[in-house]
Design a protein around this nucleic acid. Structure first.
Length: 853
RNA sequence: GCCUUUGUGUCGGAACUGGUAUACGAGCCGCACUUAAAAUGCGGUGCCCGUAAGGGAUUGAGGGUUCGAAUCCCUCCAAAGGCACCA
């Protein structure tokens, strides 16, 4: 055994051995408790940095721990390989996206993930851009299509000029493209494919309550995104136009008597019909200018409102009031009915609008049932209705119900629930994605590709990617032109490809049966493994990927393709890895563009993967942000060196470790009892720290360090002549040696999931493995004896008025009276009490005595 | 503006169910080993006053509950993230 810890010499050897032995393979349908551990698969960008390494380490430790606990663990890995960066790289470097992607995958798998010491079952690797995967993406799309869950409709959509494609709502942040923070998204009216996620809005919302193992903030974000509002749709008629009706959506139908105007979105279909000729020019000018405003301008213009009256009047069905109709771009065309009732007294925005255009303000809800003379600002709270005819005196809640009742019986409205969530726009005008398996036939319309003709292969040869002017697929006439499967006449393929989020909405199901050539996945296998017991990933997918995957799972359950209706039982959303950025001088998220990336290769070469793993686990709890610093990473390298040198010292002294691992626990000499106790305590602490809902790796590692320090202290020779240089052991009795070995052996087992290489090496060097091919990683997780975690002596804390004064070492289990008398006779206590009368004594058994004076 | 999360030494962070605040690591200081340095082993190290013994204040700020509060309650401040003209 090398006296120095040199990770470079051991890590690769074990990685190859584990691979050869197949110890990380998951066994389908095995009659054993399963554990499906998953980490969000990466986009093969070509380089993983420490931020990625952190999340893979966390998930890997969880998997390894469960494996040692005896679970049948599925821990797979794959590649989210379709997407724009491949096309952009292709244009920049003149490489084909496929070639570029495959090279990146090879590098990331072999040089990065494998070298981190991960325990994936690589037989299940999936790559979303390979035909054997997207075959089934297409097949699933057809199932959605058959169920009517995939529809084509014309709608205003988000267009990113940089990406040259449309985006889903979830992929627009602050009016800008999620990939291009500086590029404004343009609204375009286009005919596009949508998946009807809104059909599942209610279930996606309600089932969040079932997800006990999800962090609250992720659930809150999903709730907000779904954005359920309960209210009413009310019908307003138009003066002089008996056939026209304006519907408005409101959550405050209790304020309907306070309506003093209506506002339509400029895009509302009735606008021109309702415009009086004298207002025609003003209205047309306004619509024109609104059209030219970008989404961003409409939002930044915020509070400053604009608008134009149409000149016509609407009639409030409740009180017959005639009220002016306006248009204004503060009303969104895409939400509700695209029209709102203006109630300035009870809505901030309406209040501002009314003040600006001098419209009347009529209070109809007040806190005490009396109307105020003049409102200085909108009164937004619930209250008692006033000025509201037959509804006067009701509270807002009650009034909301009654008003809906009245509206229904008078054909003037109905109850309505409105969601913010829109259907998922999934078509993309780009090349590097999964082709949508549909055919446009002039005679038959849209015809699905026959399932037996799947997959529709994405052509690789002869494609010219320009990034402009639509999908290059449209120029590939050989691919494009096809006979209609229905009528046999000339037809054309759909040239749009699918949003890559579709690929990632079901990859976790494919892992259950990754090589199936006949179907997406076999029922029995997918139902054996699903749902995922522990999912780990970044919070940036709180809405996007996590919502889409939930939707997919529910839809597939309804189709009978999977049993569970929630895919991820427990979710760990890990914090980002940040580092000082030399450009800005601030701590920022690690990213190439900021120039603050720490690559893995150099670090692995210098300190080894085990140190990298330990540091990313130790520096902060998993949910928290982690600031990368090589200086403190060194602490982990030192710890592992210390672990290593102790093994060497043992071996050097010819300590026989294979002989006996058992000993009589009742016969332990006092000299070693505390080390034995420390060992049991450590097993307990680390076991608890690695249990789900805890996952506090930092304290688990800290406990391991304490145990190693304890071992050093116990074995260290502190006599004068031996106080220098490296660690020297004092002479120990046979029994003491056995306890040292017991402690050290358990320490290796506890560290094995976190530092897999060094523990495996020492395990073999010291002979804990009986045969060469035995691995520490399939050894049973250590057990502890609760009896042996308890000290028989404790420190009794002595307090006066709750303040610490002194402590005494006493036997465990002292009765109240005994503890009291110790406190009252302790010399420090006596001098502090100083003969003042004792009011009260509080005793917490085996912990403290508090004397109140 | 609304929602969520977080505020503990020089730094990363511990602290069970309210019970010795600052575990573990980094940094710094010292000792040993060494010709020397590095590495390693051992010890010290939150702040203020004090040579010391000892004393005092302290978990973003202020108040409250309690024998006792980092922990529970209220008000405020700060930071990070999310949502935001959604009627």
């Amino acid at each position: 055994m090398n006296p120095e810890y040199e990770p470079q010499n051991i890590e690769e050897k074990w990685q190859e051995r584990w691979d050869r032995l197949g110890i990380y393979q998951a066994h389908d349908l095995e009659n054993k408790k399963k554990f499906y551990s998953l980490v969000m698969f990466p986009y093969p960008s070509g380089d993983l940095h420490m931020g990625h390494m952190r999340v893979y380490t966390i998930s890997d430790v969880i998997s390894r721990h469960r494996r040692m606990q005896g679970y049948n663990v599925l821990n797979p890995m794959g590649w989210d390989a379709f997407g724009l960066p491949a096309e952009n790289a292709a244009m920049a470097r003149g490489r084909h996206p496929q070639q570029w992607t495959q090279e990146n995958i090879k590098y990331m798998r072999d040089e990065q993930l494998k070298k981190l010491g991960t325990s994936y079952d690589w037989r299940r690797e999936v790559t979303t851009c390979e035909p054997d995967y997207y075959h089934w993406t297409q097949w699933l799309f057809l199932q959605f299509f058959k169920k009517g869950l995939a529809t084509r409709k014309e709608a205003p959509v988000n267009w990113c000029p940089e990406c040259q494609t449309v985006l889903a709502n979830e992929q627009v942040e602050d009016g800008k493209c999620w990939r291009h923070g500086n590029i404004e998204v343009i609204q375009k009216k286009m005919s596009q494919w949508f998946l009807k996620i809104t059909d599942y809005a209610d279930r996606l919302l309600n089932d969040l309550d079932k997800l006990k193992g999800w962090p609250e903030h992720v659930k809150v974000m999903q709730r907000n995104w779904i954005g359920k509002s309960k209210g009413a749709e009310l019908f307003f008629t138009v003066e002089g136009k008996p056939n026209v009706r304006i519907n408005v959506f409101t959550t405050r139908q209790d304020t309907v008597f306070g309506v003093t105007y209506l506002v339509l979105a400029p895009e509302h279909p009735l606008v021109l019909d309702l415009t009086e000729s004298r207002q025609k020019k003003a209205v047309q000018d306004y619509i024109e200018s609104a059209k030219h405003k970008t989404e961003l301008e409409r939002m930044t213009a915020e509070k400053s409102k604009t608008g134009v009256p149409l000149g016509s009047l609407a009639i409030n069905p409740f009180n017959g009031d005639e009220i002016p109709i306006w248009i204004s771009d503060y009303v969104l065309a895409g939400y509700g009915t695209g029209a709102v009732m203006g109630v300035p007294a009870h809505d901030e925005r309406d209040f501002v609008f009314a003040k600006l255009f001098d419209l009347p303000i009529k209070q109809v809800v007040s806190p005490d049932g009396k109307a105020a003379t003049e409102l200085k600002s909108a009164y937004l709270d619930a209250g008692i209705l006033v000025n509201s005819g037959m509804f006067n005196g009701l509270d807002s809640e009650k009034a909301k119900e009654k008003i809906i009742d009245w509206a229904m019986s008078n054909n003037s409205g109905c109850a309505r629930i409105q969601y913010k969530l829109r259907d998922w726009l999934i078509s993309r005008q780009r090349y590097w994605g999964c082709p949508i398996p549909l055919i446009h036939c002039e005679k038959c319309g849209i015809v699905p590709v026959d399932e037996k003709d799947l997959p529709v292969i994405l052509p690789i040869e002869g494609i010219e990617i320009k990034g402009q002017g639509g999908s290059p697929l449209a120029n590939d006439t050989k691919w494009l032109n096809i006979k209609c499967p229905k009528c046999g006449q000339a037809a054309k393929r759909e040239t749009d490809t699918m949003d890559t989020f579709i690929d990632s909405s079901w990859y976790f199901l494919r892992y259950a049966d990754a090589t199936n050539k006949k179907e997406a996945f076999a029922l029995d296998k997918v139902n054996y493994w699903m749902p995922i017991d522990q999912y780990v990933g970044g919070v940036e997918h709180a809405i996007l990927h996590l919502l889409y995957s939930r939707f997919f799972t529910k839809a597939l359950k309804d189709m009978g393709l999977v049993d569970c209706d929630e895919p991820f039982t427990n979710l760990l959303s890990q914090g980002m890895v940040t580092m000082l950025s030399p450009q800005s001088g601030r701590i920022e998220k690690m990213s190439k563009s900021r120039g603050n990336v720490v690559g893995t290769t150099a670090f692995f070469e210098q300190y080894g993967a085990d140190s990298a793993r330990l540091f990313s686990l130790f520096a902060a709890p998993p949910e928290q942000e982690l600031v990368w610093s090589e200086d403190s990473a060194i602490g982990q390298y030192r710890f592992l060196g210390r672990l290593w040198r102790f093994a060497h010292a043992l071996q050097d002294q010819g300590v026989e470790v294979t002989a006996k691992t058992e000993f009589d626990e009742n016969n332990v000499p006092a000299s070693a009892a505390s080390l034995l106790r420390l060992t049991h305590k450590t097993i307990k602490a680390v076991s608890e720290d690695l249990e789900k809902e805890h996952y506090v790796f930092n304290t688990a590692i800290s406990s391991c360090m304490i145990l190693l320090n304890g071992i050093y202290k116990f074995t260290g020779d502190k006599t004068e002549e031996n106080n220098g240089g490296s660690h020297k052991s004092k002479s120990l009795s046979e029994l003491e040696k056995q306890i040292v070995i017991f402690a050290y052996r358990n320490l290796l087992l506890l560290l094995a999931p976190m530092a897999p290489h060094i523990t495996e090496q020492i395990w073999h060097d010291l002979g804990f493995a009986r045969v060469e091919d035995e691995s520490i990683h399939v050894h049973a997780w250590p057990k502890y004896d609760v009896k042996l975690t308890i000290d028989n002596e404790i420190e009794l804390v002595l307090q006066i008025n709750g303040k610490f004064v002194n402590k005494q070492i006493v036997q465990r289990g002292l009765r109240k009276a005994e503890a009291e008398s110790i406190a009252l006779t302790d010399s420090k206590m006596v001098s502090k009490i100083d003969n003042r009368p004792v009011q009260k004594i509080i005793v917490v058994i085996d912990r403290l005595v508090n004397v109140v004076i």
